[in-house]
Design a binder for these strands. Sequence first.
RNA 1: GGUCGGAUGGCCGAGUGGCUAGGCAGUGGUCUGCAAAACCAUCUACACCAGUUCGAAUCUGGUUCCGACCUCCA
Length: 494
Amino acid sequence: MKIGKLQLHNSLTRQKETFTPLEEGYIGMYVCGPTVYSDVHLGNCRTFVSFDIIYRYLKYLGYKVRYVRNITDVGHLLDDGEDRISKGARAEKLEPMEVVQKYTLGFHDMMRIFNTEPPSIEPRASGHILEQIQMVEDILKNGWGYESNGSVYFDTVKFSKEKDVYGKLSGRIVEELLVETRELKKQDDKRHPADFAIWMKADEEHLMRWNSPWGEGFPGWHLECSAMSTKYLGKTFDIHGGGNDLKFPHHENEVAQNYGACGCQPAKYWLHTNMLLMNGKKMSKSDGNTITPEGLFTGDSPHVTKGYSPMVVKFFMLQAHYRSTMDLTDDALQAAEKGYRRLMEAQKTLEGFSADGTAGQVDKEINELLDQAFEQMSDDFNCPMALARLFELVNKINGLRDGHLPMAELSAATLDRLKKDFHAFTHDIFGLKDDVADGEDGEKMDGLMQLIIQLRNNAREAKDWPTSDKIRDTLKELEIQLKDAKGVTTWTKA
RNA sequence: GGUCGGAUGGCCGAGUGGCUAGGCAGUGGUCUGCAAAACCAUCUACACCAGUUCGAAUCUGGUUCCGACCUCCA
């Protein structure tokens, strides 16, 4: 495969850089996964869809990628100091691990619905308590932490003063962090507000607790990612990803912990996805500006006029760059739905082509568009640009089908490439699938439709308009639309 | 208040110092038994004010507005 250099925007340097893996041909990528204390948020879905495409594209380029995405099932503190999982357990009268199981399964279902690939390893924080305790010990041994009343804190103050590392990723000014006077509950044992817990002493009523050299307790939230990335990807690995909102404090503290334990930066490249907004505002449960994935799919929400299929939602997400905020509106979804259908239709049309012409202008343009699509994808995973080239190809495909463009100028080799690359983009890289015709039911449905189309075309040939129109109108009532192109009739869900 | 990012045509959303992003919607046409679809053509832009430049939506400064983070957050 002939692909130009891969460029990516590194949050650590705030610049686009040429990607060079630590080990030729291999990539280690860690992405912060969900905290499984409630149903997946649509914003989570965007992040994981984005990284899924990055993962898929890296693999497409020929890299062997180890993609690690954790499940946070312990140690995530709320304002009042209570663990998120424990809180969920109390609220639902369940064992903490029941809560974890329930929402982990729900999360996996949603990832499947969005047709994302599972990561290579999906470690759980609760399964890596030993590694986390070890990391706390390493940090203590290196002098970057202190024990206080059964809890262990990272000494941010000392670390900031002695190493020029803290604040680099998130762009914080350390001096300002150090004068921060905000008081947090249950953290009275800290020497300084900027310090953060790497091991927390468990209260009497705390449900999730483990033995440690410092007594019964549980790991700090930031620690799990440090411990698990180190375990599965090594002290330094290629790519670390996550949502923009995790930059501070989570990622900043992660860097501090890794540095504190191992003396080096954990990741060479940091990738951050931007937020999904709705009607121009951040989605938030408290002010009602939110929609669940299910609500989007079924249309059962005041924010949408109808339901949109998961693939339409995914296609919608692909239209914006991963580093841009994206505004979800009903109008935008309607537009996405039509665009998505158009893309899938063209895919089907293309599959029916055969050619053995002599390469002419069309041939050249098709090759150029394909080259550009890959170049743009290699430029910091610019999906919207690559998608734009794909739509220009849709235009060519439809033109060839309708005879506006000469099929005789298309060589067999180029057609073969077009079929392969187009499919690679839509299915292998973007992870889209035709939600109308793919799958077992889809095939049955398509078989039935082909029969109906044939019967209608028989009627049309006999100029039996009442019959052919009745078929067309009845199907339309069933939300199935027939499209009569030259010689071929196709169908699609309206 | 601090830090960072943004402001693009009716909507969503790319991008670049001079050349059509793309999708959806609109308009005119072609095709069609009719229609839809498709195709061809086409109209709406770069928040505001200065400056740099032969030339800026793209660079610089200021203004206004918006968002994110600073506290759990993808």
